[in-house]
Nucleic acid binder design. Structure first.
Length: 113
DNA sequence: AGCACA
């Protein structure tokens, strides 16, 4: 009565759920809408030495610019506020991936909360 | 990777 591998799948030896590729990792619908539009932009991948001044120089060129807020607690991210979401969208598209330095292309999304 | 102001 040795262990016959043939019984392994038939009884208790099923693989953990985490290894079963059920849906191949399907998520919610529409990957084209990563974040809901917002008049405030969330900017990340900034060099840690960047200042609100630098961001203002860049973003104030686009219509509707209101203000820039940096998050001191988490270096490398910042918020850019615009008058409305149409204007913030234009600015986001325009400056998306803008290289502040060679290693720091800006990653811009709509702000979360 | 991160999400702050009012």
């Amino acid at each position: 009565m040795g262990l016959n591998p043939a019984y392994a799948g038939a009884y208790g030896a099923a693989p953990p759920f985490s290894q079963i590729p059920y849906m191949g990792g399907a998520k919610a619908a529409v990957p084209e809408a990563p974040a809901p539009p917002n008049s405030i932009l969330f900017v990340q991948n900034l060099p840690h030495q960047s200042t609100p001044m630098m961001l203002q120089m860049l973003f104030c060129q686009y219509p509707g610019f209101k203000e820039v807020r940096m998050v001191e607690a988490k270096p490398g991210i910042a918020f850019i506020e615009y008058g409305d979401e149409m204007q913030s969208t234009v600015a986001m598209q325009a400056l998306q991936g803008f290289k502040i330095t060679a290693e720091n292309p800006m990653l811009i999304t709509y702000a979360k909360k």
